[in-house]
Nucleic acid binder design. Structure first.
Length: 572
RNA sequence: GCCCCGGUAGCUCAACUGGAUAGAGCAACGGAUUUCUAAUCCGUAGGUUGUGGGUUCAAGUCCCGCCCGGGGUACCA
């Protein structure tokens, strides 16, 4: 909060001295070391250098133009030309007081809201969702919520895989080997079985492969029976997807699968050919990127030699539809890192097809989920791990821990807590690391009660709730000001002020782990405060102020966790 | 072959436009409990940031070479 006011004043001071300067990079940030101050800027060093000035002299002149006495002690020039700002407690106190009045929660919404499309999850019809889908789902939904918290308009779209060559094999399986009982029990498992069965049969038998092609052509040509089966497969799949999304608390504004774009595909290819972007090569329609370094040797196929389109074509049609429907300023794709080449091609191709479209096209990719042996996360027999079972296990493990730690809670409440903690642990493990790193899936690590984990953060929240439970019916009085006389109070209060800055950083780089780190630090600062500053036993103004600090910390924790897609609980 | 990504403490990870003494957790060791929930807190120890050069007042971060690992690479998505 305050850093924005300082930043604005600083930028104005620089412009007084250098009217031509680009001050967009003159930023105020928290100090890496508290001993230097609360906030700093290092931007003047670079600015001086670009203008062949002495950095310290420039810093001195800027300080001369700068009046921040409302907020800070006298500004200090340090080292090669850093400015260090030390907050006045009064300024800190004012910000806290306005927060207790509900005027803000330490962040500002965007002055100019943008429209952003976020594409995540995207499971395939007739295949069970597995552990690989969870990262996209969790990351994408968390990002959507952070953008929304900051006042942006977000359209979330689940681009499910409901079309493609796999349906030829699925149709053969459905017609010749379907087990209706199994379908009733677990539709996705049965469809997966059918697919594997036919797929294996195709390897050794040309006639089966020919059957599959035949069924696929019939589907594509609108054969009534095949279309009906296809619709049923989609319905059954979506039912199970929705069950998982319900458990995860994830939602979508749109679910426009690949098939939604079928009508447009031919037109896209024609367009590309007419405009000379695509050309024929080995029977296929292909786009070459000869003047592009990393794509030079990687042409993109937009129409296969059998005349069918592929996912590049579908994605182009999808982008066109998104541009026409919502005019977004940004389209975000949350997928694993193996699709980097595809999205490079897609974006480059779209830029050529629709020059000047003005959208930021952003592939937000993430690393693999590995088992504790460092290899791709699978069951011991090498099977892909299904999401529903994984969620069950998370809840069960969390239930065991809750029951051990707090056996006196009623069973129903323990189940509720186990759901919040178990699912929270899985989500938080996905969110708290750098998304681009591979991450090692470990129950013990994610359900640990200490460290940067969901249980630790949730526990911090329950301690706050516990204080307010003890308070009973006593009404919360709002402090006139905050003295912040004890070091732990001061540290906690200052950290609350950084919430908005962190939210901005999450949005800028699509990295929810920044918010996780922030909340973890907040919980840590609260822990120290809690140990060293009695709240209910304190008296008078101090008690009022500490209760208010607890309340504000609780609000930020809850808002932060909910923005990440985690629920909170009052007891653990 | 080419392209992309990564390599940070024993392990898992972080490090905000390049910025001040590279930070956490786990594991190890030592301390704190007539509690506001100890599912906690405090402390100790642990590093040539893969490697060799370069740019810079300043490099984990940028540039070049090399080593190691992962992924991708014409009709799957």
């Amino acid at each position: 909060m305050i850093h924005l006011a300082l930043q604005e004043k600083l930028q104005r001071a620089v412009l007084e001295l250098m009217p031509e300067a680009d001050v967009s990079s003159v930023l105020v940030r928290p100090c890496p070391e508290p001993k230097f101050g609360d906030y700093q800027t290092n931007a003047l060093i670079g600015l001086a250098k670009r203008n062949r000035l002495n950095p310290r002299e420039l810093a001195a002149k800027v300080v001369g133009q700068l009046d921040v006495t409302d907020y800070c002690e006298p500004v200090e020039i340090a080292g090669p030309g850093f400015l260090n700002f030390q907050l006045k407690t009064a300024a800190l106190s004012d910000t806290l007081v306005s927060a207790t009045r509900g005027e803000h929660l330490f962040y500002r919404t965007a002055a100019e809201p943008r429209t952003i499309i976020i594409d995540y999850s995207s499971p395939n019809v007739a295949k069970p969702m597995h552990v690989g889908h969870i990262r996209s789902t969790i990351l994408g939904y968390a990002l959507a919520r952070v953008f929304r918290l900051l006042g942006h308009k977000v359209v979330t779209d689940n681009h499910i895989g409901d079309w493609g060559t796999q349906f030829g094999k699925l149709l053969v399986g459905w017609k010749e080997h379907l087990d209706k009982d199994a379908l009733g029990q677990d539709a996705l498992a049965e469809m997966e079985r059918l697919y594997k069965l036919v797929n294996t049969a195709c390897d050794g038998d040309e006639t089966v492969l020919a059957r599959a092609r035949e069924e696929l052509v019939k589907l594509q040509n609108g054969d009534a029976e095949n279309l009906a089966i296809w619709h049923e497969m989609i319905d059954l799949s979506r039912h199970q997807f929705d069950e998982i999304y319900g458990r995860l608390g994830v939602e979508f504004d749109e679910t426009l699968g690949e098939s939604f774009y079928n009508d447009r595909l031919k037109g896209v290819v024609d367009d590309l050919v007419t405009q000379g972007i695509a050309e024929e090569s080995e029977g296929a329609q292909v786009v070459f990127f000869n003047d592009h370094k990393s794509l030079k040797k990687h042409p993109a196929i937009v129409q296969k030699s059998d005349g069918a389109a592929n996912y590049t074509t579908t994605d182009l049609a999808t982008l066109e539809h998104r541009q026409d429907s919502w005019q977004p300023s940004e389209v975000i794709y949350v997928t694993d890192g193996r699709q980097q080449l595809h999205f490079q091609q897609l974006f480059e191709l779209y830029n050529r097809w629709k020059p000047g479209h003005g959208m930021k096209l952003n592939h937000v990719w993430f690393g693999a989920i590995l088992g504790e042996d460092g290899k791709p996360f699978k069951t011991r027999s090498g099977e892909i791990i299904r999401l529903s079972g994984l969620l069950d296990e998370a809840e069960q493990r969390a239930f065991d821990v809750v029951s051990e730690k707090n056996p006196n809670l009623p069973g129903e409440e323990r189940h509720d807590i186990a759901r919040v903690v178990g699912l929270g642990a899985i989500k938080y493990a996905d969110l708290s690391g750098n998304r681009q790193s591979d991450y090692v899936f470990s129950w013990d690590t994610m359900l640990a009660l200490v460290g940067n984990t969901a249980p630790y953060l949730l526990y911090a929240f329950t301690r706050i709730r516990s204080i307010f439970r003890k308070l009973g019916n006593e009404s919360l009085t709002r402090p006139e000001s905050f003295a912040l006389g004890q070091a732990e109070e001061l540290t906690l209060a200052k950290h609350l002020l950084h919430f908005g800055l962190v939210l901005e950083q999450v949005v800028d780089e699509c990295r929810p782990n920044y918010l996780c780190n922030y909340l973890y630090e907040l919980a840590g600062h609260f822990g120290s405060f809690y140990e060293n500053c009695p709240v209910l036993q304190a008296e008078g103004e101090i008690r009022t102020q500490r209760l208010a600090l607890c309340d504000l910390t609780g609000q930020v924790l809850k808002t932060g966790l909910e923005t990440l897609g985690l629920e909170t609980t009052d007891r653990m």
